[in-house]
């Protein structure tokens, strides 16, 4: 696997704990800043041979982010609890609902079922990374949601939008039927599928028009 080539060069002089502290933004009350899910002391965790590197770099939304991850940490938990990117939702944590869908090298993946250390060196895109970083202009698919007042509670929305953005990269001009199949790995419990599909089709149209 390509992943094996990606092990990080960790400067020996850097204190791991200080580094972790550096990653964590000073938390305001009820802020959305990065939160250390597994904190300070690392009880009973093997650091022996065979364990994967814990200090890794992930490329998320165009930025290299240095983080400390456990071997079992999923990409979803890493995004949500170490990088403060809570737009990626956990609906089932078992690859059934698609709420956690992100793009890994432009391919939609359930981030609940991807281990963080396996996507080092890959290009990860979350819902927070879709809009233009400088102008704030929404991605055409996001704009489609606004144009059609898509979704209801919207807990599934980030996953559907990411799945659609990913699907459109392989088929920019789908029929409703094709797009429905393309995003059928995502579940909506308000079940407003008709309006979701209308919004996503509008997004595809927006994208084609540029």
């Amino acid at each position: 696997m390509e992943d094996n080539k990606m092990s990080e060069e960790t400067p020996q002089s850097a204190s791991r704990r200080n580094f972790i502290k550096g990653v964590i933004a000073a938390g305001a009350v009820a802020s959305s800043s990065a939160y250390l899910f597994r904190s300070t002391t690392l009880h009973g965790q093997p650091s022996a041979a065979g364990a994967v590197e814990r200090l890794i770099t992930l490329n998320v939304n165009g930025q290299d982010r240095r983080i400390d991850v456990m071997p079992q940490d999923t990409l979803a938990m890493t995004l949500r609890y170490k990088l403060g990117l809570t737009g990626t939702k956990l609906g089932c944590d078992r690859a059934e609902c698609g709420a956690c869908t992100v793009l890994v090298d432009d391919v939609p993946r359930y981030s609940c079922s991807v281990l963080a250390h396996t996507v080092r060196g890959r290009k990860i895109t979350t819902i927070e990374g879709l809009a233009d970083a400088t102008t704030g202009k929404l991605h055409p698919v996001q704009q489609g949601v606004i144009d059609e007042q898509g979704f209801q509670c919207a807990f599934c929305m980030p996953g559907f939008v990411m799945a659609t953005v990913g699907y459109l990269k392989t088929n920019p001009n789908p029929t409703r039927q094709e797009l429905a199949h393309g995003i059928s790995g995502n579940l909506c419990r308000c079940q407003d599928y008709d309006k979701i599909l209308t919004a996503m089709m509008r997004g595809a149209d927006n994208a084609r028009k540029g």
């Binding site: 009820a30 802020s31 737009g87 956990l90 927070e128 929404l138 949601v145 007042q149 919207a154």
Partner: peptide, 23 residues
């Protein structure tokens, strides 16, 4: 019309219960 909460929802900024963090 467009509900005023929709941009927050579609950009991932809308906070549901599990999205809050406290020191």
């Amino acid at each position: 019309y467009t509900t005023p909460d929709l941009v927050a929802k579609v950009t991932g900024k809308a906070k549901y219960a599990e999205d809050y963090r406290v020191d």
